[in-house]
């Protein structure tokens, strides 16, 4: 129930951003992204489970904004939304409005794609619905807006992600090392890190 509502609103958010980008720049890339959104959306609506596993042959490049409904039994979450980095705060605001709580924020390093992924986990307290928000940022200049003004609890999780991956959260009130020593200038969870 709540899952459907949230999935729809997130989908609208993704579509709106794609449309905006197309209107502004009209680049070829934006068009491709738009198509992917439409495709992902239709699929999610038609057969929620099938979308869980296995990428289609012509998968869009990783990090393309789109929304998938995943099968809870095999993955452990219901909605998996990839958004543009600039949109994470808006996506978090949607979940905040629907009374989700923040579970954790983390990163994944993908050196092969020259990208870094930031993963946000949200969960609803009354109904069983887990939502994962992802955003991929450029590995050489990883930055995206903070969501700590929406969820104060994100403060520490973002600091931790900054510690481990070196991802910069713009607008974060206090992006100092939390778990690592205060003078640490290394990011241990990057794949190319060696002590």
């Amino acid at each position: 129930m709540i899952c459907d509502t949230v999935a729809q609103e997130l989908e609208e958010l993704i579509a709106a951003a794609a449309a905006e980008e197309e209107a502004a720049g009209g680049e070829a890339g934006a068009e491709a992204a738009d198509e992917a959104v439409a495709g992902g959306g239709a699929e999610a609506g038609a057969q929620g489970e099938a979308a869980g596993e296995g990428e289609e042959a012509a998968a869009p490049p990783p990090g393309t904004p789109m929304l998938r409904r995943t099968e809870y039994r095999s993955t452990g979450y219901h909605v998996d939304a990839t958004v543009a980095p600039a949109q994470v705060a808006e996506a978090a605001a949607i979940l905040d409005r629907h009374q989700f709580f923040i579970e954790t924020i983390t990163g994944v390093d993908w050196p092969a794609d020259r990208q870094m992924e930031v993963v946000y986990d949200f969960k609803h307290r009354e109904e069983l619905c887990r939502v994962v928000i992802r955003a991929r940022v450029d590995r050489d200049d990883p930055r995206l807006p903070t969501i700590s003004h929406v969820f104060p609890g994100a403060n520490w999780h973002e600091r931790e992600t900054h510690d481990f991956f070196g991802i910069v959260f713009d607008g974060h009130p206090y992006l100092e090392p939390l778990l690592l020593p205060e003078d640490a200038d290394f990011h241990p969870l990057r794949k190319d890190f060696s002590p």
């Binding site: 009374q99 989700f100 709580f101 923040i102 579970e103 954790t104 307290r125 009354e126 069983l128 969820f151 104060p152 609890g153």
Partner: peptide
């Protein structure tokens, strides 16, 4: 608790009967 993601007895002490074992 919701804004900070607190769970467990801390959350249940604030009146929300949320427990992963049931939810």
């Amino acid at each position: 608790c919701r804004k900070y993601g607190a769970t467990g007895p801390v959350l249940r002490g604030s009146g929300v009967a949320y427990d992963v074992r049931k939810a």
